[in-house]
């Protein structure tokens, strides 16, 4: 049975709008839809450039269009996604607003597909509270008259220059069998590496292939690795805050050369080792979570070490070897 891990990419992007898109968005808060002149055309929605030639368009050439327009083409969305403007079935349509040379794509809310046809007249249903976003128009509705949904909070107090874009995508990744095998082994406090049958290099972290010989490594290549080693190098990170950041205090990541091997475990956390005492040559031993603990997968990339939660000082004297620091990989 394949196991999956979910990983969501969620980020509130902040976009700057520049003169033309900014004016368009500001217009939306005023319940006005603006286009921009390019020769004898009026481009809607407006761009800073002519879409055919790339020529710079004059922001002073912005003109109001609509608010009503004609459906030029449409498609019915029977099962809207979470990103769509409406939670119930609707149409996406190309709407040629009165006075525009190009159609605007937006939602048309008619309840049922048979209420829609090419040539239908539609007008915007404005959100009562508008921020300067294409979603200030909830949807277009049949007819000539714009509507406002709920109490009208009026136009923006200042020109709109920025826009939020909240993207969220969830990925469901199958966990490669080698990672699951290593994870299970970690429950029994084993660290598994894999030996390439061609070059005999041993790889940690459940990579499942040798990058030198470009061969896959299966279960038959598994080897048990020792639980003690020496810190060869490290980094101490002062965390920067960002959405999803879990750290608040400086934290260490160390590189551990496992005893009697050529294997480095890179960027490992430490346990009961204050950042001030992390140094090259420090002797450490594996620290394990209790076998019954749930372990955090942190996605398919981070699950290889399983119950190995980090490295704890072993109390042995430091190793003095000037070459140690060069062992990063």
């Amino acid at each position: 049975m394949t196991r999956f891990v979910e990983n969501s990419i969620v980020f509130p992007y902040k976009r700057s709008l520049g003169p033309v898109i900014g004016a368009f968005m500001t217009g939306l808060t005023e319940q006005r839809i603006l286009g921009i002149r390019s020769g004898d055309q009026v481009i809607v929605p407006p761009l800073e450039w002519d879409p055919q030639t790339g020529a710079e368009l004059d922001p002073d050439g912005m003109v109001e269009v609509g608010p009503a327009g004609t459906v030029e083409s449409w498609t019915w969305v029977p099962a809207p996604s979470e990103q769509h403007p409406l939670g119930h079935p609707f149409a996406f349509a190309f709407i040629r607003l009165d006075g525009a040379s190009t159609p605007l794509l937006h939602a048309v809310d008619t309840g049922a597909p048979d209420a829609l046809r090419v040539g239908a007249r539609v007008a915007p249903r404005w959100r009562g509270s508008r921020v300067g976003h294409i979603g200030d128009i909830i949807a277009f509705v049949p007819g000539e008259q714009p509507e406002v949904d709920g109490p009208d909070s009026g136009p923006a107090e200042a020109p709109v220059t920025m826009m939020d874009y909240n993207a969220s995508i969830t990925y469901r990744n199958p966990v490669p069998p080698v990672l699951d095998r290593l994870r299970e082994a970690s429950r029994d406090q084993r660290i598994i590496g894999q030996r390439c049958p061609v070059c005999e290099r041993v790889y940690s972290g459940g990579r499942g292939y040798c990058p030198i010989d470009a061969v896959e490594l299966g279960e038959e290549q598994d080897v048990d690795l020792p639980h003690t080693g020496t810190i060869t190098n490290f980094t101490i990170v002062t965390p920067v805050q960002y959405p999803g950041q879990t750290e608040t205090e400086p934290f260490a990541r160390v590189f551990v050369l496992l005893d009697g091997t050529d294997v480095i475990l890179p960027y490992q956390p430490v346990v009961e080792l204050p950042v001030g005492e992390v140094r090259v040559g420090k002797r450490v031993a594996a620290a394990w979570a209790p076998p019954n603990d749930d372990i955090d997968d942190a996605g398919a990339m981070g699950g290889a070490y399983g119950h190995l939660i980090g490295w704890i000082p072993s109390g042995e004297p430091d190793v003095e070897d000037p070459d140690l620091v060069n062992r990063i990989f």
Binding site: R15, L17, I21, M25, P45, T75, V77, P80, S81, E82, Q83, H84, P85, F92, L104, L105, H106, A107, H133, I134, G135, M163, Y165, A167
Partner: peptide, 14 residues
């Protein structure tokens, strides 16, 4: 288009 289309969830299928 990150201003006019992506925020509507306008996908290539549409």
């Amino acid at each position: 288009d990150p201003f006019y289309l992506a925020p509507l969830g306008a996908d290539p299928l549409t």
